[in-house]
Design a protein around this nucleic acid. Structure first.
Lengths: 196, 196
DNA sequence: AAGATAACTGAGCATTTGCTCATTTAAAAA
DNA sequence: TTTTTAAATGAGCAAATGCTCAGTTATCTT
């Protein structure tokens, strides 16, 4: 029998990410994807059940990739300051190196597909984050607070900065450029707010 | 001559917001909108040039509404703490009372339409925010920092919390419920990080 | 070499899409 | 009342959409 051409799978996935990232989820279509990936529309349906399956599958893959990258070198027993800083650096590096992936992910996160993609990724998050935060609380480094509050204070500012960087222009027409220095300053700000 | 039926304009706008909020921008279509608004497709084109014009126009209107609501009772000469708190309360109240609008806005903000809608709203933002932040810096209440960093630390956590609240489930399957108490705690956290 | 299997294809189907136009309706002006 | 103006309409067009199927191709086993 004939074997799957792995290049085709990769081409489909890469083209999908590119299309959503640059044209937006609302302009994403299977026929156009097939053309962009250099593949027949029918081929896509060998790998994915339908359009929704394609988008959710890819978003989960990318989400897992991103989560893995964010947790590289991270250990839930690290001090709060060190652990959070590792995650900030990893996440920023990943988003800048793979900004198409990051943009794709962000688009899906704000769409009707979010439920299916987030239930997988939140599990991954919860496992690693839960212990880390619990340790930090027990050590008296931070106050006890709902996980959602923690996430909102600890990570939302970073993701916002990354978005400002990736969008061409930002507040007031100027161009905003991310840098190690700015990230560190913002981190200090957030850390100060969180720690006792 | 015949006058415009203002109910039709309102019905179109409300139906558009509802549709995008509940079915997602990627499932928004003119024919379906016409049916939902109880109006002929052709009527929509009396009020809007095309689909893009409709979405950007409505998003700008809603954005202005939201900005106005957020700044109710706000004065750039307030103390930093008081001024920011007023904005947090206003914004949270608006988003919870008008969560369809908020959802609609959030969808457009993460789409290819973002450029056109944000250039108007960022102007409004910049005018009011610039002075306020500058005053706070001169009074020595906060450090000098890029506006993007300020925005990311001061507001991104709040918007994140609102999203957690509006999504059915959040981190780890549990349900997260926003409350005055949680908002105040999060605010204190953010304020502590920002102020000297 | 022949047969078996499954990846792969392009043409194209049914439906939906964004949008238009000939016509009708309502209300002001004559 | 008649004329004039523009709002409002529903049928429907060209194009695009998600998806399928009969047929072809590559690679395995025999």
């Amino acid at each position: 029998m004939r074997y799957r051409d792995e290049n085709k799978v990769l081409a489909i996935r890469e083209a999908a990410i590119d299309m959503v990232a640059s044209d937006g989820l609302e302009n994403f279509g299977i026929n156009r994807l097939a053309k962009a990936a250099g593949v027949s529309p029918a081929t896509i349906y060998i790998y994915y059940k339908d359009k929704e399956d394609l988008l959710t599958s890819i978003s989960i893959e990318e989400g897992v990739k991103m989560t893995r990258a964010t947790l590289k070198g991270f250990d839930p027993n690290m001090s709060f300051k060190e652990g959070l800083w590792v995650q900030w650096q990893n996440r920023a590096a990943f988003s800048l190196d793979n900004h198409k992936s990051a943009e794709f992910f962000e688009q899906l996160r704000n769409s009707t597909y979010k439920d299916k993609m987030l239930e997988t990724i939140n599990d991954e998050f919860r496992k690693n984050m839960g212990n880390f935060v619990e340790n930090a609380i027990e050590r008296g480094e931070i106050e006890r607070m709902p996980l959602e509050v923690y996430w909102s204070v600890a990570f939302a500012p970073l993701y916002s900065l990354i978005r400002f960087h990736n969008e061409g222009k930002s507040l007031g027409g100027r161009k905003f450029k991310f840098s190690e220095k700015i990230m560190k300053e913002t981190f200090d700000c957030v850390l100060k707010g969180l720690t006792k």
